[in-house]
Design a protein around this nucleic acid. Structure first.
Lengths: 119, 119
DNA sequence: ATTATATTTAACCAAATGGTTGACAATAAT
DNA sequence: ATTATTGTCAACCATTTGGTTAAATATAAT
């Protein structure tokens, strides 16, 4: 399916970069369900839905269970962990930098407002 | 740039779904830097780099500061927060479900291994 | 004034994306 | 046995993507 760590991230982020697919994930987070039911909210052909599901499967976010003519889709959130961790790393950075930025702005503010008492 | 919350997520996830752009973000997390320096590690035209930066800018992840002929790029991680929160919601789900799954597997294991003492 | 450097833009290209329609396959219901 | 339901597949289409080359722009250095 997906080879290295980087391609895994590619696949997951790409799968998530579409509102239809995100909505499908939201739906599947409630409970597993079949294709037709999963397709219901969307103004789109089943063929298109089928492709979206395949993208989600490709990223490992959905697993399919075939029972006769009914395919049941189930969410697997484990591939998300890589994405979360990648993002979390920068969230951390963000907090740091934001602190630094705040400090810088406060300092700057001090110099501009305190220009009267230049000591 | 980006209209609603959904399009913001589209843009951010799409921007992150490319290894070149993720590497750029990693580079910019060290310190802001110019285009040529940012382009250095990649076997790719400056024109291609320019496009990648534009995608990052479009998602709000990079802000550009033009000083004469030098453009300085700076990381802005704030747009990532939406993505993190979206994912975190399912990470939570993941933990729950994983617990349930673990329990189910343990129970199943118990029934298969403990078939001798059927009490 | 000329030349070098930094960067974008426009035009192009192949491949991928997101959708459609229509035909097919498999199973379930009558 | 026929018909209805569930879902995929193949072929097609327009648009987007990720890259190229070549030209243009703007600034800096000589």
């Amino acid at each position: 399916m997906v080879n290295n760590q980087n391609e895994q991230l590619d696949a997951v982020f790409h799968a998530l970069a579409d509102p239809t697919r995100r909505a499908m994930i939201a739906r599947l987070a409630q409970a597993p369900c079949g294709i037709t039911e999963l397709a219901a909210p969307f103004d789109m052909t089943l063929a298109a839905i089928s492709k979206h599901i395949k993208v989600l499967e490709g990223a490992g976010l959905v697993v399919r269970n075939i029972q006769g003519r009914n395919h049941t889709c189930q969410l697997d959130t484990r591939p998300m962990v890589g994405g979360i961790e990648w993002l979390r790393h920068y969230e951390q950075f963000w907090n740091q930098r934001l602190d630094a930025l705040t400090a810088a702005l406060l300092a700057e503010d001090a110099t501009t407002t305190d220009q009267t008492n230049s000591n």
